[in-house]
Nucleic acid binder design. Structure first.
Length: 587
RNA sequence: CGGAGUAUAGCUCAGUUUGGUAGAGCACCUGGUUUGGGACCAGGGGGUCGUAGGUUCGAAUCCUGCUACUCCGACCA
């Protein structure tokens, strides 16, 4: 049976909704696919559900091809499993939490690692049952501080999440690869451009991790890539450190007066004016060692001051710092933090003073001191002397000061060398559409998932976790496929295959349209039939363009001559076809 | 969480400056006309003007508090 617009649950809007900004959001609401329920939470209408189902069908198809089995968990879960793995605390305010009438704690799951692990623990005990990959398509909940851009960043979103279970590392590698391959096929079938980048495992824990990013300027992720094939999320980028240099023969450090130079720029200007370099070349910001004071807020709420030393031509990238210090939160140090450490002279902080070490283990302040990987032994720096208006020149790393370690917290700049030697990187923005992780044994260990191996020995299972954002993908496809008239769905995900419009007052037109619809359905096509009487042609054409079914058949005035028009939504091209040849013109 | 803005009919908005009977277009209902680009005529239903308090003879309009939403930023699949 065709879907008849005269009785379909659909209302299109003539005007843009005032609360929508991006094209996908505006058009999905206007064309009657979704309705906003609360910020970042949407109701799905019949048209929207059809597109969602199309995307899910492709995902299911490839999951089955990859040997994964579908299950379905509740979105509402007890909090205990999340407490056991520590994620109840680590996830922070991003997780929806609630209590039932008995005051038992529940969560709306942001992801389902814990309960999948427990399910397998319940049912499986032997290595013979592995490998196993199971998945679900389920709504996830994350209490985003600021949901935005409609479906692109919501608080409720549909995700396909798969979990693999192996008892050997090689097995995990194979399971991971199978999902990774499936993802490539899924995104290819959906016609979505993607880049696979090295990623940080973040709150999930685990080791190897890659993100599938759709390159777009509006993406929330910054990633780097080199011509030689290296690609990584900036959060996972590792700095290519130069070789250490010999310490012998380097001149002694000298303290100079540098009044009113609290910033790197003012310091460089003063250095060039008053203390030019011996060989005559100019000092630059890269010759200075900037010491940035950060406060770590640990999970138990304690605050720890830490100083990061990095070349003065770079800023600290807070996201990278967060990753480096996870699960602690990172903040800029505030006045109260400084007040507790009078040894820190704002604007003139450095690891060294005439009185000895100022930063690091065993120093006068005892504050943890971590440096950028570029600060290798034998490098010489201009940096604060811990006295107002004074800097030390030629301070040598490894001789005059020793850091407690290195840290990947400096911003990544275009032109930085890729860590694998494949050349300089460029920066680009992308939106995460898939993520594959090797979780390793973190969850299995915490929740006690073990199996007996060939030798009858209990071994802890190793796991992978694999996510695809279904509703986000739907939004991206809508974002990529529209014009000023409305949506233009690719045939693979369109809510219908054909949109038949009957327009005219002659009853023969409607009779002809009914026959066309039957012919099309006989070919196995999903038909949306605009049979609305007393609706003017302009409205029908406008709605068809707004809804965005790829092919539109206009049954109207041509019926008298035995022809109808095929209208390609994307190209706008219209061709005349004989009435009885319409169905044959579809593959 | 910082900054900006908005809140009046189902939707998009005017009215607030200067207090005096609640408005328009679209959508919806009835009847008629119309049918290849968002038609026309006639009639109709629908709003405690976000919320609480205050000023006033009288508040959508002035004052104060609160709340919600949107955008930018921080954060985030």
């Amino acid at each position: 049976m065709p879907t008849r617009l005269s009785s379909y649950f659909l209302r299109t809007l003539r005007e843009d909704p005032s609360d929508a900004e991006v094209a996908s959001h505006v058009l999905l609401v206007r064309a009657g696919y979704i309705r906003r329920q609360a910020p970042g939470i949407f109701a799905w209408l019949p048209l929207g559900l059809r597109v969602k189902a199309k995307i899910e069908a492709i995902v299911r198809d490839e999951m089955a091809a990859a040997g994964a089995f579908e299950v379905h968990f509740p979105a509402l879960l007890p909090k205990e499993p999340y407490e056991i793995t520590g994620r109840y605390d680590e996830y922070g305010p991003g997780m929806f939490r609630l209590n039932d009438r008995k005051d038992a704690g529940l969560v709306l799951a942001p992801t389902h690692e814990e309960v999948f692990t427990l399910l397998v623990k319940d049912l499986y005990n032997s290595y013979k049952d592995l490998p196993l990959t199971i998945f679900q398509i389920q709504d996830k909940y994350r209490d985003e501080a600021r949901p935005r851009a409609g479906l692109l960043r919501g608080r409720e979103f549909t995700m396909k999440d798969a979990y693999s279970f192996d008892y050997t590392d090689a097995g995990l590698d194979a399971s991971y690869q199978a999902q990774r391959d499936a993802y490539e096929r899924i995104f290819t079938r959906l016609g979505l451009e993607y880049v696979i980048v090295k990623a940080d495992a973040g709150a999930m824990g685990g080791s190897k991790s890659e993100e599938f990013l759709h390159p777009t300027p509006v993406g929330e992720d910054t990633f780097v890539r080199s011509a030689g094939g290296y690609a990584a999320n900036v959060e996972a980028f590792t700095t290519l450190a130069p070789d250490a240099k010999p310490l012998e023969g380097l001149p002694a450090a000298e303290v100079h007066d540098t009044p009113d130079t609290p910033t790197i720029q003012s310091l460089v200007d003063a250095a060039n004016a008053d203390h030019p370099r011996a060989d005559g070349s100019a000092w630059t910001a890269a010759d200075t060692l900037k010491n940035v004071v950060l406060t770590l807020v640990h999970l138990d709420g304690t605050r720890e001051l830490v100083v990061i030393g990095l070349p003065g031509d770079r800023e600290v990238d807070l996201k990278r710092a967060e990753v480096a210090f996870a699960p602690a939160e990172v903040e800029a140090a505030n006045e109260a933090d400084f007040a507790k450490h009078p040894g820190l002279v704002k604007g003139y902080i450095g690891p060294w003073s005439t009185g000895g070490a100022v930063l690091g283990d065993g120093s006068s302040t005892g504050i943890r001191y971590l440096v950028d990987p570029r600060v290798v032994d034998g490098t010489q720096w201009i940096t604060g002397a811990n006295v107002p208006g004074e800097h030390v020149f030629g301070l040598v790393a490894g001789r005059d000061f020793v850091a407690d370690g290195t840290i990947e917290a400096a911003e990544v700049l275009a032109g930085d060398p890729a860590p694998d030697g494949s050349g300089p990187v460029e920066l680009a923005r992308g939106m995460e559409i898939g993520h594959v992780f090797q979780l390793g044994r973190k969850y299995a260990e915490a929740l006690g998932l073990k199996v007996l191996d060939e030798n009858g020995k209990l071994v802890t299972v190793t796991m992978g976790s694999y996510g695809i954002g279904v509703t986000r993908i739907l939004a991206i496809i809508a974002e990529l496929n529209n014009d000023d008239k409305g949506l233009i769905w690719p045939p693979t995900v369109a809510p219908f295959d054909v949109h038949v419009i009957a327009t005219g007052k002659d009853p023969a037109i409607y009779e002809a349209a009914e026959r066309v619809v039957l012919d099309l359905e006989a070919k196995g096509l999903d038909v949306l039939f605009d049979d609305r009487p007393k609706v003017s042609p302009g409205v029908k054409f406008g709605d068809a363009e707004l809804i965005g079914v790829p092919t539109i058949v206009i049954v109207g005035r041509g019926v008298a001559d035995g022809v109808v028009e095929l209208w390609d939504r994307r190209s706008g091209e219209r061709t005349q076809v004989a009435l009885d040849a319409v169905a044959a013109s579809f593959r």
